[in-house]
Design a protein around this nucleic acid. Structure first.
Lengths: 234, 234
DNA sequence: TATAATTGTGTCGCAATTACACAATTTTGC
DNA sequence: GCAAAATTGTGTAATTGCGACACAATTATA
């Protein structure tokens, strides 16, 4: 026998998808060609289906758009203000995701009318999506200071200066090269490949990869990655 | 016109209510005398009503049980596993609250068949409420290391050793009196009242209150309260 | 009234972070 | 092709912050 309480609502999921292009943080946004708010920009979202957990639904939506699974995905807040969706009472469980911008499935993205857009040039989004992005960034900042999750935004092989640029982008700050390098190497998370970066522009630094074992360990354990970056306010 | 998507679900809210009795953390739990799972222990919860935001609903539920408003209340996670509620598909938005255990409304609590129970003696709870408590404690630990929210669990006037016992309870650890005192006083959050603690047992330490202005500032701002307590894993 | 426990304040040493210098390599501009 | 500018890698000194510990004052205990 179901509960006698009868107020049932639509449950949506919205994904704030972060990418890093070597310079700044980007968001994967959709230019809607469907109602409501057709023609405007929004986050990628969808509705919770029957027989599907929140986690599963978020993964499904992310896979739909990027063709990628196994991306970093974390629930961070549920939005339920009255009138946040003008069509019908809907609450939205918001997730943020960190993806390697090079791995994207161009066709999947194009078919959804989506684009990578620099966070600094973000257009106004529909509903309460601007608020969601703001809160996702806060959470990302806190999380990335406590756990080594930044690597999810980089290719498998990367240089230390690339990694530094990423953290400078996340925290909108400048870091000292030498101290950053020493700090990162002291975590023992990186393994040098001996190779040099042969990519287009910058033919310099040594390429590193993650030490998978250390990475898994430090993801889970009680640990503080770069406490000096903590901005609290989360 | 409503969305054609038809899968609407019940939205519940559950509150993990923390209190501090001078020794350890306590939870305000309900011994259910209603179905389902009558006779078993659970968190205080309820359903989202029409025309009510998540925040409002959580406050309503908390007020119902404690007779208190203006308590510290923060959403921390939404639980949506299949079958988490055996009666009907329900997702639950979980909040944790910090209340001053001395301010409680005894009648309201009794009428709900609720009791304060030490976290160390927590019985098994219904549904996924054990998981909720576990996650709430994780979040409390991270949050309390980053922001000065611990005071919400204490009376208006308190001694530094009381405050220390609280942090020792939250982090299940022992702290050095002298270092703790120095650290706390350096935050400029406390204002000495000159009075001494004249309460029953312990007739000693000086009573302090919060500097309301500093407290409000450090709640909001980018700040790291006691980074050495961070346990990450959140 | 003596003893034990609690509170308040101070000092020292170590570790971590910050600030800054220099050499090697690569790109850029002519 | 060569000099200048920029980037990378590594080192070192000064400062700061935290942990460990000593001691005096006050209050409870017996």
């Amino acid at each position: 026998m179901p509960y006698s309480h009868t107020h049932r609502v639509l449950v949506a999921l919205d994904c704030i998808i972060f990418g890093f292009d070597g310079e700044g943080l980007n968001l994967l946004l959709i230019k809607r060609n469907f109602e409501p708010e057709s023609g405007k920009w929004s986050l990628m979202g969808g509705f919770l289906n029957d027989g599907e957990s929140l986690e599963e639904a978020a993964h499904r939506i992310l896979y739909d758009l990027t063709g990628l699974d196994n991306n970093y995905l974390e629930q961070f807040q549920t939005f339920g203000a009255i009138g946040r969706d003008p069509v019908e009472r809907t609450i939205s469980v918001a997730y943020y995701s960190l993806v390697n911008i090079e791995d994207q499935d161009v066709n999947a993205i194009r078919s959804h009318n989506a684009s990578w857009i620099s966070l600094t040039k973000k257009p106004r989004l529909i509903f309460d999506h601007d608020l969601m992005v703001q809160e996702a960034l806060k959470r990302l900042r806190t999380k990335a200071a406590l756990n080594p999750i930044g690597f999810e935004l980089l290719p498998e092989k990367f240089t230390i200066p690339q990694l530094q640029k990423l953290y400078e982008a996340i925290y909108d700050t400048r870091l000292d090269r030498r101290n950053f390098s020493r700090k990162i190497l002291s975590t023992r998370l990186l393994v040098g490949t001996g190779e040099k970066d042969m990519s287009s522009q910058t033919k310099k630094g040594q390429l590193y990869t993650l030490d998978a074992h250390e990475y898994a360990r430090q993801q889970k354990g009680n640990y503080s990655f770069m406490p000096e970056l903590i901005m609290a306010d989360f």
